[in-house]
Amino acid sequence: MTYLLECEGVTKNFGGLVALKDISIQVTKDEIIGIIGPNGAGKTTLFNIIAGALPPSYGKVFFKGQRISEKPASEICRLGIARTYQMVRPFNSLTTLENTLIGLSFGRINPPDYKKRVIEAMNILTFMGLGTKANNAAETLTLVEKKYLEMARAMATSPEILLLDEVLSGLGPAEIVRAMDTIREIQASGVTVIMIEHVLSVIMELCHRVIVLNYGVKIAEGKPNEVANDPRVVEAYIGNVEMGEQETLNA
């Protein structure tokens, strides 16, 4: 069968440094997949390769059986893969609404009619809780709002796969709960979610499957509980994980 997304032996070298080594991943529709691993494990690099921001040194990426690893990022977005950035990167001097309209105008489904696009953008912003900020310049938003704007802009491209790069980092506990609900709703609307996250409790609760990277190598994959008890994962995390998170791992 063809998977929704498939990475086949993806390797990325930066000069002499191997950032990713022979990564193979299969993703089926409607999953929420978590990617975890210590800092520098290559998680964001993997996202960059899937989204087309970087070409892989070796290996291929397929989306619905179609090879996308040679395509430009803009085309991959139009095929239906959207992403957010770990360090938020909104179009600062454009308004929240304009930011969202970019996604709507150039994404997978883009209504030809301007009015329809505006209405649709307002719907998305309202869903993300940014409805009242539509006319504010993106640079005036708070960090939490910017994180939601990242998601709104990505959702505006009507993606089939959404790559979330640490959208929850920097949020408080109550905000995390709200964001988790948002991610669940996104998944329920038929979007497959792949998320990089450091907050392990979220991964345990949200994800159907977890992939663990360490030093560019995939060291484990499976259901959250299985992965948490995998000796290799525990080993990779020991010394790296703070007490609280370790408890979550063992829970």
Binding site: A51, A53, S74, E75, F91, N92, S93, L94, F106
Partner: peptide
């Protein structure tokens, strides 16, 4: 709008589908 987005951040504009 696409031109404005390129002005703001070209790489991000590309990843949001702007050729």
């Amino acid at each position: 709008l696409a031109l404005l987005s390129i002005r703001e951040d070209e790489e991000v504009a590309r990843s949001f589908g702007v050729p």
